[in-house]
Design a protein around this nucleic acid. Sequence first.
DNA 1: GACATATTCAACCAGATGGTTGACGATAGC
DNA 2: GCTATCGTCAACCATCTGGTTGAATATGTC
Lengths: 110, 110
Amino acid sequence: MTNPLDHVFAALADPTRRAILAMLLEDDMAVTDVAEPFSTSLAAISKHLGVLADAGLITRERRGRVIWCRLEPDSLRAASVWMQGFGQFDPVDLDAFERFLEQELDATSE
Amino acid sequence: MTNPLDHVFAALADPTRRAILAMLLEDDMAVTDVAEPFSTSLAAISKHLGVLADAGLITRERRGRVIWCRLEPDSLRAASVWMQGFGQFDPVDLDAFERFLEQELDATSE
DNA sequence: GACATATTCAACCAGATGGTTGACGATAGC
DNA sequence: GCTATCGTCAACCATCTGGTTGAATATGTC
């Protein structure tokens, strides 16, 4: 009834969550470390991580006291295929991608 | 403050709106014709079209009594670049895209 | 001008969303 | 066992969202 794409796109619609994904692109992170650069509460970030996990965009694994978050890029495949089908865009332009990430991270820290 | 990507992804998060975009992929359409296959009210579809227009995904042009809706695929480019940057996915797989569209349109008519 | 068609607007409603704070459960270290 | 740390849960709040219905606006036709 609810399409997986619903959850993926809804998860991506929030700038905080996109910033979190960008951070996880670098490396796996503990929840506390994910929350550190944001001015919102840890509980709010925990909720965001829940939304990302429900969409399949990340997985969380407890190791001792710490819960590690890992990006699951394959979960974006369906959504990416959907969008490419509309635009028939050029192949991956990583320079443009870098620019977007910087722009978004700047906006986050404002 | 609000990123354009926010609006694009939020617009794509709704299955009715994705179905509308798929319909417009075929050809430009009048608002009434867009609404026809859906069981919701015309006013609801009009709101969806407003969301899509705000995100830049469609444009609307009045010609006489009728307002024509046109897909603006270029507006997906930024979002597509963002996603491809994460997944480094294969180039466009149009077969997979067709399957998604069919799946979504089936779900819409249920 | 009167009427029909096409579309939006306004007011409303129920439910989701993103945020907060404070309490709670789980684990590590002393 | 006590205590500090990591993270979630629960309750609450304001705002957004997707839907409705009925009125309003704009255009075409007679």
